[in-house]
């Protein structure tokens, strides 16, 4: 299981999580979800420190965060 689980179908591609990630571990994916948005994805899992910020700032309750 990944440290950051993105409920892709709910993501609106707003980029708020990417902006606030302190480790630049997130990115917008090239693919498009069923709403027509580029969803956020954990592009660099090794860099992620499981701080939870992306989950807290997401306006759409898309992200859950786990710590190994």
């Amino acid at each position: 299981m990944k440290k950051v689980v993105v409920n892709e179908a709910k993501c609106k591609g707003c980029g708020v999580c990417v902006n606030f990630c302190p480790k630049s571990a997130l990115a917008m994916a090239d693919r498009i979800n069923s709403k027509g948005y580029h969803p956020a994805e954990l592009a660099n899992e090794a860099a992620c420190i499981s701080c939870g910020i992306c989950g807290r700032v997401c306006p759409d309750a898309v992200i859950e965060v786990f710590k190994p």
Partner: peptide, 20 residues
């Protein structure tokens, strides 16, 4: 893995109409 952020239970698991 320990969950450090989970979405609140008092929100229904639906998509909102709010803008991105």
């Amino acid at each position: 893995m320990k969950q450090v952020y989970s979405v609140p239970k008092s929100l229904r698991p639906v998509s909102t109409h709010y803008c991105p």
